[in-house]
């Protein structure tokens, strides 16, 4: 199965976001590199607003991800609650 991934800058804002992604995607692998964190998952990865809000302790707009996003891979689908990355095979 193809890998999808999302990479974020390593900073204070993204720490709870990365925690949330790990909670929602138990199959994901988190790679920490200088100044960045790359999260790989087989086939599909979901970023959920609610989980981020729980980790962050405040309301969160998923589009805020744009600020710390480095790169991603897969077909993107986004609405107010989730951002999904997936490959069709």
């Amino acid at each position: 199965m193809s890998t999808v991934f999302i990479a974020l800058q390593a900073n204070e804002e993204t720490r709870p976001i990365i925690d949330a992604i790990e909670i929602d995607n138990p199959q994901a692998v988190v790679n920490r590199q200088p100044a960045m964190v790359k999260i790989d998952a087989p086939g599909r990865l979901v970023v959920r607003r609610e989980t981020i809000e729980e980790q962050l302790g405040r309301a969160y707009d998923l589009q805020e991800l744009q600020i710390n996003l480095i790169t991603l891979s897969g077909n993107v689908d986004e609405d107010e609650d989730t951002l999904t990355l997936s490959w069709n095979e």
Partner: peptide, 29 residues
């Protein structure tokens, strides 16, 4: 941008990491 900018961070070049990742946040789009 990705491995090279991470490399810039590794080599102490905060200026380049910053423009690199700032640009790359748009590149995802």
């Amino acid at each position: 941008f990705v491995p090279f900018m991470s490399g810039a961070a590794y080599n102490g070049d905060m200026a380049t990491v910053t423009f690199g990742f700032s640009a790359q946040s748009d590149e995802a789009r």
